[in-house]
Write a protein that binds this DNA or RNA. Structure first.
Length: 269
DNA sequence: CGGTCTACCTGAAAGC
DNA sequence: TGCTTTCAGGTAGACC
């Protein structure tokens, strides 16, 4: 399940293979993703990829005539392979390059997206997004001020893209545990001091995951490269019923907004 | 407008 | 064993 670190790792993984390369062909094997893949993406043919950027969990493959916007959804992954490599099941969209390589979007559940944005335009998916978590625009003051008057649980609050982007279920669980904050606590009733503890923890958790992922990038261009999933030291996520690493109490599971939420009832208040 | 809920998907795992 | 059900979850949009 790609969260922001996985998306950033994917960006770093594909960039050296496709930057400054010319797209020779766009092949849409199955255009029925979250939204139909627009014909506009064919405009990339014959154009050079000038840059590969990330905003939230979206990747932008930028050219002079516009940008392809990619989202990995729940189950998506990107691979760079030789064009002769046989397609795998669920390889839905493919960009061929003048260096003999192909970028393939594989997405079994098809929650992902492959969209188009003309120069100077901002696609609607980018409207109303909160700050990037790893920039200075995201700080404790922002969380504190955004949360005043909000009754929503703090876990759902930090997962809200309007508040801050890129904090998915796994990292929300992990960050709240490390900060000692109960996931159900009302966002609007949490002190500035507690947000001052939480904010750097979110940043550190995401940054550490990106660094770990970076070490697995070597094989990105190989057919069996498996970017997106890397060894991550998870303290609570997926550990329901196991003992808390801090106090030994049995980790609890509740559901918040239909999402699995794991926490320690002793360490998180 | 804030808050909550749902649809979109497939495959793995659990349940029967 | 094999069929059926549940669950996983990011995000936009519907809904009250």
């Amino acid at each position: 399940m790609p969260e922001l670190p996985e998306v950033e790792v994917s960006r770093q993984g594909i960039e050296p293979h496709i930057k400054q390369k010319v797209v020779t062909e766009v092949r849409i094997h199955n255009g029925r993703l979250r939204w139909p893949v627009p014909e506009d993406v064919q405009r990339l043919c014959g154009k050079t990829i000038d840059a590969v950027h990330r905003r939230a969990k979206y990747l932008l493959l930028e050219s002079k005539v516009g940008s392809a916007i990619l989202h990995l959804g729940m189950s998506g992954s990107l691979r760079v392979v030789e064009q002769s490599e046989p397609l795998k099941k669920h390889d839905h969209v493919e960009l061929l390059f003048d260096n003999g390589l192909a970028l393939r979007l594989n997405d079994p559940r098809r929650f992902g997206a492959f969209l188009w944005q003309s120069p100077g335009e901002a696609h609607t998916v980018f409207a109303k997004l909160g700050p990037e978590p790893l920039t200075d625009d995201f700080d404790a003051k922002h969380l504190y001020e955004c949360s005043r008057g909000k009754k929503v649980a703090v876990k759902q609050f930090i997962m809200d893209n309007h508040v801050v982007v890129g904090v998915g279920n796994i990292y929300a669980n992990e960050s709240l545990f490390k900060a000692g904050i109960h996931p159900k606590r009302e966002a609007g009733k949490i002190s500035l001091a507690r947000y001052q503890k939480l904010t750097p923890i979110i940043k550190d958790t995401l940054a550490a995951a990106i660094l770990q992922g970076g070490t697995t990038l070597k094989d990105f261009a190989q057919s069996d490269g498996k970017p997106g999933y890397f060894a991550q030291e998870l303290l609570v996520y997926g550990r329901k019923g196991e003992p808390c690493v801090q106090c030994g109490a049995e980790l609890q599971e509740i559901r918040l907004g239909q999402r699995s939420t794991i926490y320690c009832k002793k360490c998180q208040r």
